[in-house]
Simulated assay, not measured.
Amino acid sequence: MARAAHRAWSTLTEDLDAAVRRDPATHSRLEMALATPGLHALWAHRLSHALWRRGGRGRLAARLFSQAVRSATGVEIHPGAQIGARFFIDHGMGVVIGETAEVGDDVMLYHGVTLGGRSMDPVKRHPTVRDGAVLGAGARVLGPVVIGAGAQVGANAVVVKDVPDGAVATGVPARIRRPAPEQDPTEALYNEPALWI
């Protein structure tokens, strides 16, 4: 029991520290812990996901809890979604993450991002977001597509096909490009593309 409690505490503090590193508007760990709905939604998801994995009545409890969290935070994460370490949702409001979504480590989402499905079949129907990816405000990533490690999706982009590692996807529908080797990947979101894929 003590080992499980220590592991849970370590996960919570790791999430908190990752959020503090990514939010220049915060002034303390306490402020971040008390006033960040994306972080609250993540912590609640970690609990609802544990209930979901138990199966049976645990799944109903997980769904009810996740809906209460949605009402409180404006962030909807299905308890079946798999979320990695050091995940951060900036601002939070309007984020939706579907049941079969898989999110890697060190991923950052801005407000209004949807990791949604395009099928009603009970199969893998939501995106996989690999380690270190960043999805801009209002981005829609739909279907069982893969957002590669270190990739960036621009604000309000609509992504319906895979984005390779390190690439940038912008527009509706999203066009994918690789930043020039000397170009800062973050700046690539705002500059004319060097190379479309």
Rank of each mutant, 00 (worst) to 15 (best):
Phe88Lys: 01
Gln183Pro: 03
Val168His: 02
Gly56Pro: 09
Arg53Thr: 15
Val158Tyr: 00
Thr114Val: 12
Val172Lys: 00
Lys124His: 15
Ile197Trp: 04
Glu192Phe: 03
Asp15Val: 12
Lys161Glu: 13
Gly166Trp: 04
Val20Phe: 13
Val69Arg: 03
Leu115Gly: 06
Ile83Met: 04
Gly92Ser: 07
Val159Trp: 01
Leu34Phe: 09
Ser71Cys: 11
Ala8His: 12
Pro122Ala: 12
Arg21Leu: 10
Gly154Ala: 08
Asp106Val: 06
Gly84Arg: 02
Ser28Phe: 09
Leu47Trp: 13
His45Arg: 04
Thr186Asn: 06
Asn191Asp: 10
Gly104Phe: 12
Thr36Leu: 13
Thr26Cys: 12
Ala5Asn: 13
Gln67Glu: 14
Gly112Gln: 08
Ile83Gln: 01
Asp121Met: 10
Arg178Lys: 00
Val95Gly: 02
His40Glu: 10
Gly94Pro: 00
Ala139His: 07
Arg7Lys: 15
Ala169Cys: 01
Val75Met: 04
Arg7Asp: 15
Arg21Glu: 14
Gln152Lys: 15
Thr170Tyr: 00
Gly117Gln: 09
Glu192Val: 03
Glu192Gln: 08
Ala2Pro: 04
Ala8Asp: 13
Glu76Ile: 04
Ala149Val: 02
Val107Met: 13
Ala101Trp: 11
Pro164Thr: 01
Met120Gly: 11
Ala137Lys: 07
Gln82His: 10
Thr114Cys: 10
Val107Asn: 14
Val141Ser: 08
Leu34Met: 12
Ala151Glu: 11
Met120Arg: 11
Ile197Asn: 03
Gly92Arg: 04
Ala18Met: 08
Met93Asp: 09
Leu39Gln: 02
His49Cys: 14
Asp17Pro: 05
Ser119Phe: 10
Ala25Gly: 09
Ala139Phe: 05
Ala174Gln: 01
Pro173Asn: 04
Leu142Thr: 06
His49Pro: 02
Phe65Leu: 15
Val160Phe: 01
Leu60Ile: 14
Met32Asn: 08
Asn191Pro: 00
Ala194Cys: 02
Leu142Ser: 09
Glu14Met: 11
Pro193Met: 01
Ala19Ser: 12
Pro185Tyr: 05
Phe65Met: 13
Val145Tyr: 07
Asp90Val: 07
Pro173Tyr: 02
Thr100Glu: 09
Leu47His: 10
Leu42Tyr: 03
Gly84Ser: 02
Gly148Pro: 08
Ala139Trp: 03
Thr73Asp: 03
Gln82Glu: 15
Val20Gln: 07
Asp23Trp: 07
Arg118Ala: 13
Met1Gln: 05
Ala137Pro: 05
Pro144Ser: 05
Asp105Ser: 07
Arg175Ser: 03
Tyr110Met: 15
Ala62Pro: 09
Pro24Leu: 02
Val141Arg: 08
Ala8Phe: 07
Arg175Thr: 06
Gln67Phe: 07
His45Lys: 11
Gly166Met: 01
Asp23Val: 09
Ser119Val: 02
Ala167Gln: 04
Ala169Ile: 00
Gln183Gly: 00
Thr13Lys: 06
Pro79Leu: 12
Gly38Lys: 03
His91Asp: 04
Ile77Ser: 01
Ala194Phe: 01
Asp15Cys: 11
Ala157Glu: 01
Met93Phe: 14
Glu182Asn: 07
Gly94His: 02
Leu189Pro: 06
